[in-house]
Every structure is written in structure tokens, then in C-alpha cells.
Computed example of a mutant assay.
Amino acid sequence: MLDKTKIGHEFPLFSTEVEKGRLRFFAEAIGERNPIYTDESAAKAAGYSAIPAPPTFMFSVDLDGPDMLPILKLLNLDIGRVLHGTQDFEYLGQIYAGDSITQKSKIADIYDKRNGALEFVVQESTYTNQNDELVGRAQQTLVYRN
């Protein structure tokens, strides 16, 4: 059974720079065809100050931390038994090329189902830009198969 005393554990804050090329690559990878996500002129013509981050980009910010998916190490999870269960996003502002985004994350809950055959870890994250504006929140649930 996973260590429920880790509920509330806060991971170290980290910041990452959002680069134009990375946003273009992300947009192409998810099949986004709107030129505002790949062309600065199109973004500005649409009223944006720079190329905006496509929806769901916040999750890729998580991968820039000092440890990739630190929850695996903290809970001693075998990655071969981990499934990505859910992912929810709340958009409170816009992330742009050139922004510096600070991610803050914690374990919000750990629970099990089917007499412990499946365990669930809920992680909540917030994303703040260089102007200390909260631009988004995310919640993901990992499923651990025992």
C-alpha cells in the first residue's frame, strides 16, 4: 500500500522558460493547426502579445522540473505499474512565448479501490508567470496497479 502520510507533500518549486520553438513543436505534436500557435504575426494579428501556449501545454511544464515525475521517486513507484488516469486543467490566464512559469505541486490525495488492487494518487499543480499571475491549475490522477 502506498504511504498515505505523503498526502499534502509539496514538491520543490521550479521555474522554466517558455520558448517560441517549443510552443510550435507542441502545437504540431498535438495536431493544432491554428496559426496563432506557430506564427508570431498571426498571434499578434489575433490580439495576442506573443505566441500563446496551446491548451494542455501546462502538463509539459511539469516535465521540466529537476526530477522528471518526482512523485515516482517519493512514493517508490514502479513505472511499469503506473497508468495516467485523469488530467484536468483550469485556465486562469494565458501562457506566452517568453514567459517564465513557476510550477508548484503537491499530493492532494491517495486512496485505493478493489481492496487495494488499484491505488490512486491525486496531484495538484499551479502555474504562475513572471508577473506573479496565476495562469493555471491542473490536477492529475495516477493509477498504481498492485
Rank of each mutant, 00 (worst) to 15 (best):
I30M: 08
G31M: 04
G31D: 02
E32C: 06
E32Y: 06
R33M: 02
R33D: 06
R33Q: 11
P35W: 00
Y37A: 07
T38F: 00
T38D: 02
D39M: 04
D39L: 02
E40H: 02
S41V: 14
S41K: 13
A42D: 11
A43D: 04
K44C: 05
A45I: 09
A45C: 08
Y48N: 03
S49A: 08
A50M: 06
A50F: 03
A50V: 10
A50T: 02
P52I: 11
P52C: 03
A53L: 03
A53F: 02
P54Q: 08
P54L: 03
P55I: 14
P55V: 15
T56A: 08
T56H: 05
F57S: 12
F57Y: 15
F57A: 14
M58C: 14
F59Q: 15
S60L: 09
V61A: 02
L63S: 14
L63F: 15
D64T: 15
D64N: 14
P66M: 02
P66L: 03
D67W: 11
L69Q: 05
L69D: 04
L69W: 03
P70L: 05
P70R: 07
P70M: 10
I71W: 00
I71T: 15
L72Q: 10
K73M: 01
L74W: 01
L75Q: 07
L75V: 13
N76P: 08
N76Q: 15
L77M: 08
I79D: 08
I79F: 01
L83K: 07
H84S: 09
G85H: 03
G85S: 11
T86R: 08
T86W: 00
Q87L: 11
Q87Y: 01
D88W: 02
F89K: 05
E90C: 01
Y91H: 11
L92H: 13
L92T: 12
Q94I: 15
I95C: 10
I95K: 04
I95V: 14
I95D: 07
Y96T: 13
G98P: 06
G98R: 02
D99E: 06
T102K: 09
K104P: 02
K104L: 00
K104T: 11
S105M: 11
K106F: 07
I107Y: 00
D109T: 12
I110E: 01
Y111D: 13
Y111V: 12
D112W: 01
D112V: 13
D112F: 10
D112R: 12
R114Q: 14
N115K: 15
G116S: 09
G116E: 10
G116N: 07
A117Y: 01
E119G: 14
V121S: 06
V121E: 03
V121L: 04
V121P: 04
V122W: 01
V122Q: 06
Q123I: 10
Q123T: 13
E124P: 08
E124V: 01
E124S: 07
S125K: 10
T126H: 03
Y127A: 04
T128A: 07
N129H: 05
N131D: 14
N131M: 05
D132H: 14
D132N: 15
D132S: 15
G136L: 01
G136R: 02
R137E: 11
A138F: 00
A138E: 05
A138D: 06
Q139H: 07
Q139D: 06
Q140V: 00
T141W: 00
L142N: 02
